[in-house]
Design a protein around this nucleic acid. Structure first.
Length: 416
RNA sequence: GUGGCCAUAGUUCAGUCGGUUAGAACGCCAGGUUGUGGCCCUGGAGGUCGUGGGUUCAAAUCCCACUGGUCACCCCA
């Protein structure tokens, strides 16, 4: 075997695409019902777009981006997430001038150069949505509710929703100072990863998964206790709306997401079915990002979710998507009938009837086996005799029943 | 990036203490009375035992390196 797909990339094979298509279709349906419209942006952008929006100090920008120079020497990066591109497109195309609120969704491949493991690939797929232009808590909850609706719709129930408020440009810096002071006291005992973050991003220390770090920081002040009035009111509203919508959640005052642009609401959906990489989806509000990228001050909120992780759960549950199978397989009993079989198959197809016939000049028995393998609903065997009489036996493959059919009326028969 | 485990037909796997033609199941192909699939029966094709080196009279088996896969750490979808 000479060539292999790049490490961390996968072929999605014909045996798997029906599941992908079914799930994508369900997702698009939910987006449509929530009135989000699809946006398709390029899979690569200028590097600084991601660096600026996601944050120079994040893991994504610091060590995970697929960045390279193109032939003109420009630094370009394969998108590691979807929000930055969507916001860039929003600004570039002046979408904010045409509408007060843009509700968009995307679905497609993302790229991060990490060591692959269960639920983690270098090219993976996300779907997500952004509501650009609304400051209200109602919008936050619409985004969260929509995310959950997708899982509900697919029969996924074993997940949990965690929410937090990470404050805004007024209250967060104050809190960070307080937290930083507390962390300094125990700095020497923290993991090296956490030590690095004490000054740069102290809130990430609280979100560390290191057990010892967790113990050491157990009693530390939480952002939720230091929110200013606006953030506190917003957070309270989000919580009460979630309750009103019947969406269970837990508040996790330590939750910080891996992207720096979040303000106020942050949320994460995890599943115990997933193993170590257990995040199914995450999102939050980002009121400063549009301005940061050169647009007007535009409060916004969005989410992103992993396709592969969603599919892992469905596969684990043994979920079977509807199979695509031919309605009829037309078999040629002898060479004299092959041309008729071929043209008739084509005719049926052009009338919207999924049909198949043999292309390998195989024996009748082989053709029947093929019809069975393809799970055709019916088989029709036609040879010289049938062509002469204008009639043939149509067999219902699942119950073995047969009936006579007039060849000229075959299309009509399948239309019912 | 660091670490554990793994690598034998298309697939999932067996392969004894190192020993002579490397097996099974499923899948694939062809048959099982003249023109009908699924079950069953018979036969067949298909392997550079991941790659390269080493030890040995002899390596799928032991050792080393590399490559790939997988899981975990970190972090995240």
């Amino acid at each position: 075997m000479n060539y292999r797909s790049i490490k961390g990339t996968k072929d999605i094979l014909p045996s798997e695409t029906p599941l992908w298509q079914f799930v994508e279709q369900t997702i698009r349906e939910v987006f449509r019902q929530f009135n989000y419209k699809e946006i398709r942006t390029p899979v690569f952008e200028t590097t600084s777009l991601f660096a600026r929006s996601i944050g120079e100090l994040t893991d994504i920008v610091g060590k995970e981006m697929y960045t390279f120079q193109d032939r003109s020497g420009d630094s370009i990066t394969l998108r590691p997430e979807g929000t930055a591109s969507a916001i860039r497109a929003y600004i570039q195309n002046n979408l904010g001038e045409a509408l007060p609120l843009s509700k968009v969704y995307y679905i497609g491949p993302m790229f991060r150069q990490e060591r692959p493991q269960a639920g983690r690939l270098r090219q993976f797929h996300q779907f997500g949505a952004e509501a650009i232009g609304s400051p209200t808590a109602e919008t936050d909850v619409e985004i969260i509710a929509m995310t959950i609706e997708i899982y509900k719709r697919l029969g996924i129930t074993n997940y949990s929703l965690q929410i937090n408020s990470v404050g805004d440009e007024e209250c967060r810096p104050k809190y960070k100072e307080i937290l930083n002071a507390e962390l300094q006291k125990i700095a020497g005992q923290l993991s090296t990863e956490s030590q690095k973050r004490i000054d740069q991003n102290p809130m990430r220390v609280l979100d560390s998964k290191n057990e010892n770090d967790q113990k050491l920081t157990a009693g530390m002040p939480l952002i939720t206790d230091y929110l200013n009035e606006e953030c506190a009111t917003h957070f309270a509203k989000v919580k009460s709306l979630l309750t009103a919508y019947g969406i269970p959640y837990t508040v996790n005052g330590r939750l910080v997401r891996g992207l720096d642009y979040y303000t106020k609401t942050a949320f994460e959906i995890t599943s115990t079915e997933l193993g170590s990489q257990d995040a199914l989806a995450g999102g939050g509000r980002y009121d400063l990002l549009v301005k940061e990228l050169g647009g007007k001050q535009t409060p916004s909120v969005g989410f992103a979710a992993g396709m592969e992780r969603l599919l892992m759960i469905l596969e684990k549950k043994g979920f079977q998507p509807p199979q695509q199978r031919p309605t009829v397989f037309i078999a040629a009993a002898d060479d004299a009938a092959r041309e008729w079989v071929l043209t008739t198959t084509m005719k049926l197809r052009s009338q919207g009837i999924a049909s198949e016939c043999d292309l390998l000049a195989r024996s009748l028995k082989s053709q029947m086996k093929e019809a069975d393998r393809q799970q055709a609903e019916f088989s029709l065997v036609v040879g010289a005799t049938e062509l002469e009489s204008g009639k043939a036996l149509l067999k219902h493959l699942s119950d073995h029943s047969q009936q006579n059919i007039v060849l000229e009326a075959i299309a009509e028969f399948f239309k019912h």
